[in-house]
Write a protein that binds this DNA or RNA. Structure first.
Lengths: 130, 130
DNA sequence: ATAAACCCTCACATCAGTGTGAGGGTCAAT
DNA sequence: ATTGACCCTCACACTGATGTGAGGGTTTAT
């Protein structure tokens, strides 16, 4: 099948399919006219790429084990686990950082609301309200 | 004071100070020779910029209220709260996304470990072990 | 007057995947 | 033979703060 057809079947843009090829993730054969010719298995390959990209892996990381996992169960491919582990650590670090920022933001928001509240009370007093 | 001195006093690189200027965050006067001349107050300005950058705000967002907060309490500047609120939402969204990815990674890691464990048991049986 | 230590502007590189467009072939159906 | 729908490669743009380097001026002290 040609690239447009593969794009339609997988929901991945033609541009991205060419990019995956440049990153060594998929290797269509070329027809005499230069067109890429994909085997039906390419659909599965692209679906796998999508899955791994959604896990936050880079194309480079995916390239390191894609050939293996396409032919075997993931658990057979020794390259997978270390990638998962280090990505997990990375993600956890990012979550911690974001939580710290979140806390800081929340504190600053609270401070502002409190000060504004205090200010409202003062204004009320000026106007003789309680 | 000149840019190098300000950089030393604040721990911010000369490059970054020039960048902040290009983003409208700080406006030194120019000496006859073209050198930037910063007032002593610039130190405080840069410290504020650092603080807001650490809260995950962009220079553009900071530019929207920096002048106000340098002259008043934050709670006085109406522009601040909406920025904090939307940044908080953004951060929370990112945390949710990362937590989803984290869950997926953990599940895949567990699956692999289970399969490998099962496989180990099989191998043990082949070799007559328990 | 020379050297060290400043300062200036301009501009490319980083990360990574994707959009977009130019300029140009190919193929199928009319 | 023309048209529309494909396909190709190459390359710039984006996001955003910062590093880095080229090429060149200024200041200060010796």
């Amino acid at each position: 099948m040609k690239i447009g057809e593969l794009a339609r079947q997988t929901g991945v843009s033609v541009r991205s399919l060419r990019y995956y090829e440049s990153q060594g993730l998929i290797a269509p054969v070329r027809q005499a006219n230069g067109y890429r010719e994909y085997s039906p298995l390419a659909i599965e390959t692209v679906e796998s790429i999508k899955l791994y990209l959604n896990l936050g892996l880079s194309t480079e990381e995916i390239a390191g084990f894609l050939n293996c996992v396409l032919k075997n169960k993931e658990s057979f491919c020794a390259e997978v686990m270390p990638v998962y582990q280090s990505k997990l650590e990375e993600i956890e670090k990012q979550i911690l950082q974001l939580n710290q920022i979140k806390l800081n933001l929340e504190q600053r928001i609270s401070s502002i609301l409190e000060e504004q509240h205090d200010q409202d009370i003062l204004i009320d007093k000026e106007h003789g309200r309680e």
